[in-house]
Design a protein around this nucleic acid. Sequence first.
DNA 1: TAAATCTTGTTCATAGTGTTAACAATAATA
DNA 2: TATTATTGTTAACACTATGAACAAGATTTA
Lengths: 159, 159
Amino acid sequence: MNKIYRNNAESLIVFQAGHLRDLIEEIIHCCQERVLFQSHKFLLTPAELRCLLLFHNEKYLTVKGIAQKLEVAKSRVTKIMEGLLNKKLVQSIDDPEDARVKLFSLTTSGLKKTSEIDNFIKEIHNELLMNLKPEDRKSVLHSLELLRSSMKVVKAKLF
Amino acid sequence: MNKIYRNNAESLIVFQAGHLRDLIEEIIHCCQERVLFQSHKFLLTPAELRCLLLFHNEKYLTVKGIAQKLEVAKSRVTKIMEGLLNKKLVQSIDDPEDARVKLFSLTTSGLKKTSEIDNFIKEIHNELLMNLKPEDRKSVLHSLELLRSSMKVVKAKLF
DNA sequence: TAAATCTTGTTCATAGTGTTAACAATAATA
DNA sequence: TATTATTGTTAACACTATGAACAAGATTTA
């Protein structure tokens, strides 16, 4: 029952599923290494780096807003911002319309660093793409879209 | 210089690289959620779960061996094994050939749990595959292989 | 063989990520 | 105005992880 399959089709699926598992694991491992590498390179903790990148689209962010985007508790955000304030990469002002709220924004050096990080990440992904043969690029992207969709379906079943 | 590209080819590459970045990010996020879900499901910490799966291929493992496979410090392994010993999922004996060495192995309940976890992961990946159209499966796997290779090249340049 | 060196695993201090609960200040609502 | 809801902080806790110092045991070498 463990090694004998009803037919070749079933055996192929088991093989492919195992292969899929190994490939995903390797790819994730590689990405995690990159995250550590780049936070080390920019003298930030991974959480600080992730947080800085949120300011790419928005000039002002609140603790609540950051917590939602990073999907962590507000108390965690307080800690992360403490680090970024110490490093003088962000500054905070009180929201003139609501005294409970703090508005965080990048300092000049924070803006510079954020832009450097974003360029670095862009460059990495550019290389990632350029290492693929031009005719493979579209199909790799399409495959990742299929995989993402399938993951969403599996996830929906799980919860 | 930021929004004007020399030609359509360059613009396409920038677009594709950004798309690649977003897709990888989403996929990784999904996988991380799965890791949390499954460790919660099996009443283990993620590190304990990862460690249990190492016994799939080998009956006996040492602290050093586990540290190498998990790519963590030996002191970390000591802690993880403490948790697994408390949960009675592993047992340890002194290596008769070297008094410094401890040989860890799964208990009966550890073996059972490990097998349940492995089946769960197999099932997840099976579903992941089955949600793809049969004619897409090979190309998705092939694309992941291409991506993995490209990542290795990029990584090699980085270090 | 005895001394020096290497290996194995543990403990401890430290850092980073993250949660929940309790709380104070402020805002919105009834 | 009194109640309720929101915002952000603090504190206690858990998990992941590292590196240094160390003890015990194995190996090498002089």
